[in-house]
Design a protein around this nucleic acid. Sequence first.
DNA 1: ATGCCGGTTACTAACCGA
Length: 238
Amino acid sequence: MRILSWNLLHGGGSRIERLAEALLSYNADVILLNEFRHNKAGATLRERLTDVGYAYQSAPHAEPRQNIIFAASRIPFDATTFPGQLSDPQLGDFTARVLLVKIGALNIFGVYMPSMKYKRPVFDFLLKLPSHYLSEDSLFMGDLNTGRHYEDEKGATFISAPQFDALLEQGWIDTWRTRNPEAREFTWYSRGYNNGFRLDHALASPSLNSKIKDAFYSHQEREDGVTDHSLMILDTDH
DNA sequence: ATGCCGGTTACTAACCGA
């Protein structure tokens, strides 16, 4: 099974045809998108996906201008979004940021992490998930908007790096890093900081990790200006 | 050192995103 994750940047807009073309070229079984929007570009993309067999699609309810998470699959799945659980006493409620795509015994949590302090309740939600997920075939995949200091960024600027590390300490496995321990690749580039950051990740449970044949990024589309993030692909034995 | 930028649109000002 091939699982693909990609951030469209503000729903895609006029770039949507280029995004669709690149997306479909990878022939993934399951597609997780960040910054999808329920607007014209979103509808165009859904049509393209439906046309080539992605009959199963899911996204939380949202206003057309909101950037949300979206999943499409050629294999039937059960979808669960997590909005209510993510309310925070200090930060308030916000749109669903986690979309569970359940395919048989495989739990794929598509994640679109907010920025800055708004990451905290979403990380807390992931950290407090029932422990059975870690012993099953499970995955957190998407734009986590963070990574490890000095490894996924040049310095130590990530706000939620301790929570990212806490997920790894729980036993979640950074599928790309464990296969590329010394590599330095980035999935987003800041012109302001003049630095690259690896923000897009796939964290797998041990049993799922043992079934992953390959975990890699494609940077070409980002370099060509199709969107501002690299895309990520996982190939599993499923 | 994130918006002063840059992309998007229930558009041409307001929103969102490292």
